[in-house]
Design a protein around this nucleic acid. Structure first.
Length: 600
DNA sequence: AAGCGGACTTAGTACTATTCGA
DNA sequence: TCGAATAGTACTAAGTCCGCTT
């Protein structure tokens, strides 16, 4: 019964199913959607049974393993060394080409990148190779060749492109799906990562190192006991290991060639019910924090002045995580980019600005800068000052603290509470409150703007950033130009209007041609239209400038409880498709039947 | 309680597909 | 209808946190 129930809801193509559920449940009576909620709760709870058994994640698991990138195809284009063409073996050429195709990126200009690349390349060139120094290398012939190849691809007809795509799809089709407890689910990343030069973010000490090719012998497969073991797609080679571990969700993994202590996993796609279930649990935990947050805030406020320095540090750290949505901040190795989170903040990352402001300036995850001046309670301000006294700039601000101590403390306050829950909580509660406060009667477009505004607020809280697009400045000035042009037209119309009112004909236009003689009423209408157009363009221009460094997607995908959005859409008759794209609809299938009255 | 292996979520960017506006 | 702008997807790096061992 369980199986038929769940496969029923899953075997349909997600796309159709989701939109159907949405559009039918919208506008309909709440009675109906309540029924749906109950039903799904029932089927979910029966489905939970297998997973509730001691960390068990599945009963049966069937899949076809992973697909490997094609072997390297030598192009034979010779790079130059000291101005002369060099013969390279295919293997040597492959690595040279990896660098050549990056010639127009910032990476190729960084000393560290070049150094690491040269070290690994030289190993493949061999000790006595003619190529010795980077500065004598000229990769441009290979670069030109690559540009040419790209251009050729672009010039292909639509039919040719389509055929190529279909061919690829055919080849990959069988790897795209897994069957988990009898339900067909999409696999997330079934393609093994191709070899390349490591592109670490920020000042990563390993940037430019060769990420070697992964072979079947590097890969461990996880699959159901009774399922057929996936055939190794490379003839003559075999998997490293086959496991049957149903306490984990990965289908395969290999050791990261850049950092062999770490793993690269193949998981199910975000649309799978396994992922959906844990996503829901994440938000339920964040909602639980709602009931504890008052007490937690009261407790840490009290501990700002605790005589126990560890307690004081825990209190201040928790405050920062809560108020500023900082990440926990685990320790990092020397062979990683130098970034910090809350627990790893250095003295130099926080400056006291009298009387009670703090300026934060540090590189966080992905080396994204966090720079923010905030007013804090006096006791926090004082405590930070105390933590800093007698320390050097690069010393830990919270010397008595690390993430495990902090999380251990949080767990005493609420079951399962960890630092990251605060980010989820604050993001989702902000969306919920802003939506309910700011949504006014109006058309769908206006409501969507309210949503986007709330989304932006959350993105700023979480410091989700993006790089300014290369064409941003040009786009802005083009907008300004257009606005000016419209303003010119507006002036002309106004002149014409006053002349028309006096019964005079309009002035000649810029080209000296006679304009049509319009009635004052028609002119007034035109003026109003142009005015509205200008206003809209200026609004668009402002939001564009506002959002040039803000990434809205990350919070939507990871921090905002989708049920808030779905329920809001239902309440305000906004089609959910205006808020969630196809992949988000699939990812959030579990949230679609939420009651319209749902609040976070 | 430190340290580490392990598993999972979160993140920005590069590339592609689709939509928009002259 | 075309190229530019925008939206969507693929990719994989970089975090968090758990639980086991020493």
């Amino acid at each position: 019964m369980k199986k038929s129930g769940s496969s029923d809801s899953k075997s349909l193509p997600a796309k159709q199913k989701v939109t159907k559920v949405v559009s039918s449940s919208f506008k309909k009576t709440t009675k109906k959607s309540k029924k749906v909620t109950k039903k799904s709760k029932y089927s979910k709870s029966t489905k939970m049974l297998p997973s509730s058994g001691e960390g068990q994640k599945w009963n049966t698991l069937v899949h076809n393993g992973v697909i490997f990138p094609p072997p390297y195809k030598p192009h034979g284009v010779k790079m130059l060394y000291k101005g002369k063409p060099v013969d390279l073996t295919p293997q040597q050429e492959e690595v040279a080409t990896m660098f050549a195709v990056m010639l127009d990126t910032d990476y190729a200009k960084k000393d560290k990148f070049i150094e690491n690349f040269m070290n690994d390349w030289r190993k493949i060139l061999g000790r006595n190779h003619v190529i010795q120094k980077f500065n004598d290398c000229d990769f441009s012939p290979i670069y030109e060749w690559h540009q040419n190849e790209k251009e050729k691809k672009k010039q292909m007809s639509t039919e040719e492109k389509k055929a190529l795509k279909e061919e690829k799809l055919k080849l990959e089709e069988k790897y795209m799906w897994a069957v988990v407890d009898g339900v067909k689910e999409k696999v997330g990343n079934f393609r093994v990562e191709p070899p390349g030069l490591f592109r670490g973010r920020g000042e990563h000490p390993k940037m430019g190192k060769l990420k070697r090719r992964i072979r079947p012998n590097d890969i461990t497969i996880n699959i159901g006991k009774n399922a057929p073991i996936p055939e190794c797609p490379i003839p003559g080679e075999s998997w490293k290991e086959v496991r049957h571990d149903n306490t984990v969700t990965w289908l395969a993994f290999w050791n990261d060639p850049i950092n062999p202590k770490e793993f690269k996993y193949v998981f199910l796609a975000a649309s799978s019910s396994l992922k959906g279930q844990s996503d829901k649990e994440k938000y339920e935990k964040a909602r639980m924090l709602k009931d504890y947050i008052q007490g937690i805030r009261a407790a840490y406020t009290k501990d700002f002045v605790s005589k126990d320095i560890t307690k004081r540090q825990i209190a201040v750290a928790t405050y920062l995580i809560d108020k500023l949505a900082l990440r926990a901040g685990n320790e990092k190795d020397d062979d990683e980019a130098d970034t910090v989170g809350c627990c790893t903040l250095k003295v130099e990352n926080v400056k006291c600005r009298p009387p009670n402001k703090l300026e934060f300036d540090f590189l966080g995850k992905d080396s994204i800068r966090y720079n923010n001046v905030v007013e804090v309670e006096i006791p926090v301000y004082k405590a930070i000052g105390q933590f800093q006294t007698g320390k050097g700039e690069s010393d830990d601000l919270f010397d008595k603290l690390d993430t495990s101590k902090l999380n251990a403390h949080l767990k005493e306050l609420m079951p399962g509470l960890t630092a990251k829950v605060f980010r989820t909580y604050n993001a989702s509660i902000t969306l919920d409150e802003m939506l309910s406060r700011d949504t006014k009667d109006g058309n769908v477009g206006e409501k969507v703007v309210v949503y986007q505004h709330a989304n932006k607020e959350v993105a700023i809280i979480c410091n989700h950033q993006r790089t300014i697009s290369k064409s941003h400045a040009a786009q802005m000035s083009r907008l300004t130009e257009k606005i000016d042009e419209l303003k010119g037209i507006l002036d002309g119309l106004k002149t014409d209007l006053s002349r028309a009112r006096k019964g005079k004909p309009p002035l000649k236009d810029a080209d000296g041609k006679q304009k049509r003689n319009l009635t004052p009423e028609a002119l007034e209408r035109k003026i109003a239209q142009t005015d509205a157009k200008i206003e809209k363009m200026e609004r668009d221009k402002n939001t564009k400038e506002d959002l040039k460094t803000v990434a809205l997607g990350t919070s939507k995908i990871n921090y905002l409880d989708p049920r808030i959005s779905v329920a809001w859409c239902k309440r305000h008759e906004v089609p959910i498709e205006k808020i969630f794209n196809k992949s988000l609809l699939a990812k959030f299938a579990w949230a679609m039947d939420v009651d319209p009255s749902f609040r976070f």
